[in-house]
Amino acid sequence: MAKTVVSFTLNGSPVDVLVEPRELLIHTLREKLATTGPHIGCDTSHCGACTVDLDGLSVKACTVLTVQCDGAEMLTIEGFAKAGALHPLQEGFSQEHGLQCGFCTPGMITRAYRLLQENPSPTEADIRFWMAGNLCRCTGYQNIVKSIQYAAAKMRGETVATSHPVLAE
């Protein structure tokens, strides 16, 4: 099948890739664009590990064709830290221990980013509902909720602190 050139903006930089129509976005990112932050966890669009931000939408890159992305603006986990400074979500996940094996984390943070764009002050229930497209096998989500709340507060300009002080015990 004839390959086509697809052009889009990835984390602020223009990219061109040559793909078969059937090529899935997750494979293009991971194998042709050295963007291995988004992961493959299920193949059936249930786990959310492959989540990227595509034209302002959180999507599962395992269920998007690369040819559908021509002209798109794309953000992956690789685009979050700016000039060495972590994004509040990245800081929140670390400060609130919102990750363990790290496999779901890029998708989680990317999804949470869009959630906070749409709702800067989500309740715990909001977060649990709107993060339900991302599976985590390690954390039980409780600290992920706290991580997102930490980031939301920081992005609102509030003073934030970890709920796990170093010398608590």
Partner: peptide
């Protein structure tokens, strides 16, 4: 000194996190 040492009993923040939260983990499929 204890805070600097971060020994047993401390809720030390994870050394692994910087790479995972920036998409720089190195898993087999990577």
């Amino acid at each position: 000194r204890l805070e600097k040492l971060e020994g047993i009993g401390c809720s030390r923040k994870r050394r692994e996190d910087p790479r995972f939260i920036q998409g720089k983990g190195n898993y087999v499929d990577d």
